[in-house]
Design a protein around this nucleic acid. Structure first.
Lengths: 298, 298
DNA sequence: CATTAACCGTAAGTTCTGCTTAACGATACG
DNA sequence: CGTATCGTTAAGCAGAACTTACGGTTAATG
């Protein structure tokens, strides 16, 4: 019988691209990985890795094995979830990766709700970049990811993952406080604040402007959406702001009637396949859905 | 993450009905099982076993976990098979449980054929009682079972198993050598030799006689079918004999025209789910199917 | 082109898991 | 009522797995 731990190590190497990276991710020494994997190769009699420059690369057999390992792990995950569900209350640690705005707006209230229902469950929140979060989800450093997706953007979810929709968050365009305009010509001169260009949010915002017929002058770039809000309030820039942020801050800003309306981002909860019915995950999901409904009302 | 080895132990206990039996089956001390399982309970925080008299019994949660373990093991089995298939030739040990007549008639020839195609594969043959074989299959002491099933008999295959049909083996009725009869009255006086009454073969044979309108006088009981043949040859008893046995011995016996004809048993190959495409299993299956076709011709 | 850094492999040593042996309490059976 | 069987627990041991340390190779950098 194959050793599950060894093939899990192989999978980590496949995920991280090198033995050393896998080792760091697992807080092992690289030597441990090397030894275990060479044992795995000896036991199976199949070459699973080959050197590629100073890294290693999976052979066809190795990739096939990793693919099958995914299935095994999903089954294990389900076994674990079902077992936890059997005594009704979730317990232990459960780590959620979330982006900034939801962290502030709804997570605290959701956590309170969860703590009441499941006193033995310890939910931890971590802030990670989206791609990083996906890798950490796969290697079990994170148990769920809260993220947003914008209409027209390929969400590109890898397989082995399970995604559910938490809710919708309307996004409205705001002009610098005190200003109102009427045509594209005028819009092209207004300064904008957006998130870094490589983010899905910024790409979506750019497309919105172009569809409206102008190219925004993006003078300010920040991943801190709260900064966007302040800039708008001070009359320094235009921005697209999600309702969640308005609700969170209690801001009195009024959206522009001229900029595109009825837009929304979708809030997603991503977990590993097999953990769909995990009690802790369900608790997190329910609490978030509830909290998001409150935001919607406003 | 659950420990796969621990939940496998739990499964063994579930299979064998007690810790001690599971320990014997795995050649462990019973203490090892007890310790590992109590660790498993402590880690998961769920009660998996409860004492029932001087044995233990699985709780609902325990049974659920075992059920999920089956899925995990099947996935592991598939991963292992695929890996072995990746280097083309089967290798290692592969244990087959078979009943007596097929062991003598076709297995030796099949083994020769397999050895030629897969020099590194070591196929072992073991003789076990049918129910025993099933348990050993589940606990991986045996990798495949060759058995026969009679029409109208519930094969009662447990789940987690995968069955394929190897071929058909005609069974004909033989009267004591030199004797021929014409009616049920006469038939009722003839001595019969059959297998032990609890076997599927004997139950089927009885049913055949009754459908033909007589109750056989079963004077002789033996699980050795070759003994049946000798009894018929000496004119001492009537019997149902499979063609496989006639071919094997080169016997000149002629079947009775009066006894039911066109009957056959089905030869089955049973393996664990997930090992369906195992290279060694496939080799065994192909070789057996081939050999059985030769028998059919005669 | 030399230097530095990162990666992988191997050797030696240490830690810790998992097993055995042994003793004990509980339950069924003759 | 003694005896055999089962499960639990404690103590000790062996092997597996990990760490540290060193060496070889590849890639990036000035």
């Amino acid at each position: 019988m194959l050793d599950l731990n060894r093939i899990r190590l192989l999978r980590e190497v496949s995920l991280h691209g090198s033995m050393s990276a896998a080792a760091r991710s697992l807080s092992y020494s690289h030597s441990a990985i090397s030894q275990q994997l060479s044992l795995l190769e000896r036991e199976t009699g199949v070459k699973l890795l080959e050197r590629a420059g100073r890294n290693v690369q999976l052979t066809a057999a190795g990739r096939e094995l990793v693919r099958n390992t995914e299935t095994v792990l999903a089954a294990m995950e389900k076994a674990e979830s079902d077992l936890a569900a059997s005594h009704g209350r979730a317990q232990g640690a459960f780590t959620v990766a979330a982006f900034a705005s939801i962290s502030r707006a709804v997570l605290p209230a959701a956590l309170v709700r969860i703590a009441q229902a499941h006193p033995d469950l310890e939910v931890r929140i971590q802030r990670y970049e989206p791609e990083d979060a996906i890798v950490r989800l796969a290697s079990r450093q994170v148990d769920a990811i809260i993220t947003d997706s914008f209409p027209g953007t390929s969400s590109g979810s890898a397989n082995g993952l399970h995604t559910t929709i938490l809710g919708q968050d309307p996004i409205r365009g705001y002009l610098p406080a005190g200003l109102e305009i009427s045509d594209a010509q005028a819009a092209a001169n207004i300064p904008w604040v957006m998130e870094p260009a490589e983010t899905a949010a910024a790409q979506w915002a750019l497309r919105m402007c172009r569809e409206r017929g102008f190219e925004p002058r993006v003078l300010h770039v920040s991943s801190d959406v709260l900064f966007h809000l302040r800039m708008v309030e001070r009359g320094l820039a235009a921005a697209f702001l999600p309702d969640m942020l308005i609700v969170e801050t209690g801001s009195r800003l009024q959206p522009s009637h001229w900029l595109p309306a009825d837009q929304r981002r979708t809030l997603l909860l991503i977990a590993r396949k097999g953990s769909e019915d995990n009690l802790a995950l369900t608790a997190v999901r329910l609490a978030l859905e509830d909290e998001l409904r409150h935001v919607d009302k406003l």
